[in-house]
Amino acid sequence: MTPSHPPSAPSNQYRHLRVPLLRRESVGNAYHVLSFEVPDGLPADPGQFVMVRATTWGNSPLLPRPMSLLTGGTTPEILLKVVGEGTLRMGRAEPGELFSLTGPLGRGWRGPHPARQPLLVAGGVGIAPLLFLARELASSGRRPLAIYGGRTSRDLPFSDDLEEVAEVHITTEDGSRGLRGRVTDVLDDLLTPESEVFTCGPDRMMAAVADATFARDVPCQVSLEAPMACGFGVCLGCPVPAVSGGYLYACQEGPCLDARRIAWYPPTSQRGAR
């Protein structure tokens, strides 16, 4: 990543690869990390994603799944939570199993701005693109603030890894680790006029985070999750209503987007007018 030159267009350097699964590790509650073997490397920016499907799936599930990258390079990794048929199959995959990987796709995080203090806000499996970002920041000598929330202590995959590269505040809904509550309970105290927020997690969490940043006039990017069949602007299955009218496509303009461009996250003051 080159922070001073954010990607201005979605990558057209994506490839379709057939690669073996190198490793699968279970983490916490129904989370799995899959590592793939890509000898010539998958050069990805933090926030970019890949479309993933095992070649053994046959006709069902039919479509590949969009997955944020945890790392790129010669052993790219994804983090998944089992939520349906596709992720269930991935969570049972064995090393050596052949996968198709299309990527890197979409636009990653813009910036981060060199003069602002990065503040990463992650919810559960939303940690993936943010840990990738935190590691990139660490490699350029910056240590971001982070808030990481989950339902329980078992819904915080990679929290130790995050703590290596960021100053982390943990929240859990049941209080089994960190502060009992939600990420937004901590956010207000950590936001300063110099903050720049990057968030990924459940939609309602991101909406609340975006709202808090609007109130403080602080920049905020969200990493969107949307159903998509292709990942590169063809199926048109991932429209997101835009503030400017019409739609943005999560796979093309996103998945990382300025929260102010998305009609789902208008400031509270405008929300009633929708």
């Binding site: 039919l62 199926c235 991932c238 429209p239």
Partner: peptide, 18 residues
């Protein structure tokens, strides 16, 4: 044309709806 509001697609057995 901007197209329809989301959700626009969904997977079905051996197929998809759009």
């Amino acid at each position: 044309r901007p197209g329809n509001p989301p959700p626009r697609i969904c997977e079905t057995p051996a197929g998809m709806l759009n």
